[in-house]
Design a protein around this nucleic acid. Sequence first.
DNA 1: CTGAAAGCGCTAACAA
DNA 2: TTGTTAGCGCTTTCAG
Lengths: 335, 335
Amino acid sequence: MSTTNKPRRVTIDDVARSTGVSRQTVSRAINDKPEIDPATRQRILTVAQEMGYRPSRFARGMVRQSTTTLGLVIADVLNPFFPEVVAGVLEAADARGWQVVIYTTASELSREQKVAETVVDHVDACVAFLLDAAAIARVADSGMPFVLMGNEDRPVELSTVRIDFASGIRQAFDHLVSRGHRRIAMIDDRNRAESGAPDVRSGLFTAAAAEYGLPVEPHWRQLATNSVQGGAAAMERLLETAPEVTAVVSYNDMIAIGAMRHAMARGLAVPGDCAFVGFDGLTLGELVDPPLTTLSIDKRRLGQAAVEQAAAQMAGTGAMADTVVRTELMVRAST
Amino acid sequence: MSTTNKPRRVTIDDVARSTGVSRQTVSRAINDKPEIDPATRQRILTVAQEMGYRPSRFARGMVRQSTTTLGLVIADVLNPFFPEVVAGVLEAADARGWQVVIYTTASELSREQKVAETVVDHVDACVAFLLDAAAIARVADSGMPFVLMGNEDRPVELSTVRIDFASGIRQAFDHLVSRGHRRIAMIDDRNRAESGAPDVRSGLFTAAAAEYGLPVEPHWRQLATNSVQGGAAAMERLLETAPEVTAVVSYNDMIAIGAMRHAMARGLAVPGDCAFVGFDGLTLGELVDPPLTTLSIDKRRLGQAAVEQAAAQMAGTGAMADTVVRTELMVRAST
DNA sequence: CTGAAAGCGCTAACAA
DNA sequence: TTGTTAGCGCTTTCAG
């Protein structure tokens, strides 16, 4: 017959009792404090180990207000864009002795709300890629230091880290027009388009086209899910509805690569029949064939900047900053 | 003159005082408990928001012993192998309502020790890619649920999730030999070789070669740092010391891709002059040219399995499990 | 070198 | 519906 009492956790008092010392002394032993007899320390440590004692994070955190935990919300670790941002965040957080908890929304708008809910009561500060307005508000209203990343239309009352898409798109046009392209299509991100946020990128695209005196047809724009497959699918549609385009600018490199590969599979020459420009500057883009021309951004820097802003908020300094990361055109063989 | 008193945190008591209710009522309001007058709740919430009140994670955790935080130690988010594992871990952790804190060692053995130190007093359980024996011991001895990932030589007293490299290498040999290769080189991971752990992979490689009656020359083995560049550098050396090899098996896909590209840049035909086999089955391998033949493993599953084992340990169930993930040969154009 | 007292901020259980 | 009473497990004073 089982006499399993509910397995209460082993506390410092249990160890103290078993050792015949006060709980202070146990605390000294496990924290490597100097004011303790080495022999006593050793004895305590041994017993503690045997009893399976492990200090409670919470009790500790309670009494020393030190450790900061940063929540990092991204769409998907499998999208190679994010690991680079994560690297920047980890680096900057580590420099401050912060812990980083990762949350992913699986690129589903519907999950953002729930993630926001979880985040607010598990971390001290948050840097996040979030599109859903309600989710953004949930975190912002919690009052914790919060930095929104990647949003092009900045809610002015938030601290943000953004990408300068406008200048990027102009660089792309400059480049493509100088190569003689006139009919340029865009493959945009479906999630973004559906997030309800103002459709900034397409707007900028249209505006830039106008600047360069280029025609813009509505069916030269396709939406893609954020992946290589998504890009391929969008390209498939584009080839049907707009075979006349000679260049495609994509929301990001993943989509661009998918689109480019699909075009090649369909027998088009790249860049001869159709040129491709990506956005992000993933390492991946150098490895594919042909290497992808792209508007590169310093993704690591993006992450670092976000952490810096969060830190500033924690410190009460520089309230609502807004870092804008510029793009750099990397011309490769796809254009 | 500044009268800044040290900015003590706003507590539930402060809110209670300002609101003229007991702290319990405040607690009810912020936790959305039913037994409270809606008007009171609203009033409290408003005041709390104004005062910038935010509940203390620690005090909460203290009283409701619920939340579990899992530490995940990986070498480097920028190595595309890890994001897939991370995805599996996040998924499995999320299913259990666990938080995941990420730690990276930057692929530096010397950092493992420090990371181990940090991990043990910030999380409740840990799943880790760790090579350094001392670091492994540090975590294991802490007594927390711990799962070691990726180690080929299993310390029997640990819960582990491993890759079946032996069967993988045999699949590679089978394939290469059937393609007529006899002089096969290996590019191994430098960190692993230098970790002091028994050199299992090279041993298996040698053993497999023997099985197939193939010659093995010491200079057919090169060490590489874990990256595309590292692979390229190793291939450079290999071409100097062993131009006679007709196939190269690499520690992983990143290294294989670097090696393959370097060979092509040097004018070799792939797979005509030299064939390449990778290990991991990264998506990346399908995108490069030529697509990389590889020993694919279910990396996501790896992460999930680790979390499952950690969960089993938390529950006190199934003490020391050992999951072995098998490889699957994906033949593509590089061989 | 060691111990006793005093909380850290919160919620569960019980009273009112 | 609201308030009161007890801790949760630990470290930081301050005395011995």
